[in-house]
Amino acid sequence: MNLYKILKNAFLVVIFGLIVTACATKKSVKTTAESSTTTTTKAETKKADPIEKLDALMQGDVYIGSDTVGELASGVPDRVFFATNETILTTASRETLRKQAAWLRQNSDVTVVVEGHADERGTREYNLALGERRANAAKDYLMTYGVSSDRIKVLSYGKERPVDSGSNPLSWSKNRRSVTVKAN
């Protein structure tokens, strides 16, 4: 059992290493594509929302507001948000997930479904895969903090269930999320 855990942790470390290197190589490719999208995005948001207000709600393009956030339990937020096309958990997301994990450890009879979602700016099938990847990122983190995998189901909705119907960067940031929902 212990050996299994050690092996598994070693495996996670290796995976993490892979992700970091993958990101490092990715960044260089990204720069040109992203700089062009950012300019159009900014122009659009200026019309809809004052920039100052957006700054308080988004960090980079990750949503940090509380508008759509529900509770898994009292004081335990139910969702975390992602950057465009990303599945990496932000510092705030990890804090939320640690709260969820702590609560789940205390309530060991509860099982959950982690729903993964994407914004509308991607093709349907790719977004199904992306939602699954996001939900698994959250699930893996919960597992790292002691919630056993058989208590966590993963369900990707892709872009099929947005919480915000707007067609602007702020709405999209609210929709790029994983939500932990009680299943029993």
Binding site: T87, E125, L128, A129, E132, R133, N136, D140
Partner: peptide
């Protein structure tokens, strides 16, 4: 078809 499992499709 695609199969998505454990975060990989």
């Amino acid at each position: 078809m695609s199969l998505a499992k454990d975060g990989n499709s």
